[in-house]
Amino acid sequence: MDNRYDLNKNLAQMLKGGVIMDVSNPEQARIAEAAGACAVMALERIPADIRAAGGVSRMSDPKMIRSIQEAVSIPVMAKVRIGHICEAQILQAIEIDFIDESEVLSPADDVYHIDKTQFTVPFVCGAKDLGEALRRISEGAAMIRTKGEPGTGDVIQAVRHLRMIMSDIRRIQSMRQDELFQAAKALQVDVALVNYVHENGKLPVVNFAAGGVATPADAALMMQLGAEGVFVGSGIFKSGNPAKRAAAIVKAVTNYQDAKMLAELSEDLGEAMVGINEQEIKLLMAERGK
């Protein structure tokens, strides 16, 4: 198991500096791969449509996920509902490369997350702060992402979560050794994980930004704030020119500190997704799963 968990954390390391794109059919998957996506997230409806449609949203049809696995050579991820052990078993059976236990879908369990140590495929989970990130890691998550409000095109929540995680990390780093026990209690996690953060100044797994990223500037902002890569959901295929916007976001993540290049990349991208401001949202998906 330990060996498998290390291999799974290693796969996340290979995704660093890259962009993972939501796609809902093989054609979009091929566009994403050609634009430079380092992985794709296969789902029937992208978050903006899930939000618009309402109702219960669930794991995608395995047949649709398989058609995307066949269409591209890069890793393919897919989402399961929080706590839905069986959906995760199904995705593992079709040899998915990464499972996202995601608040974007309707939660199946309002108390327990999936015990991810029981699986051989890797999981990525969302987190709003350090405690949430470390709790997911102790359940076996091999990668963490922020829980920015999906399908809104509004980056404010992803920014808030990433800033919170990074400032929590700095706080732990600056503590005296004897203060770490209390910190572990407050964060509701094992002190060993808190010690790791204290010594290394980072999470023990790769940390990506997700939710509301719609432009190259948004992606570069997340990288400057300390993300190791970016998920882009609705931002690409809800925009006027998906291929061009996708390619621009990929380059923005590689050269996130070069404002001159970011200016060029931001030119002529066509219509960005319209988006909704956070005050206008009725359903706050980030509140699902703690």
Binding site: M14, L15, K16, G17, G18, E33, A34, G36, A37, C38, A39, S73, I74, A247, V250, K251, T254, N255
Partner: peptide
């Protein structure tokens, strides 16, 4: 390094 060759190959050309 390791990563995705499709991504690096594309960025090598474009950059």
């Amino acid at each position: 390094p390791g990563g995705e060759s499709t991504v690096m190959g594309k960025l090598l050309r474009e950059l």
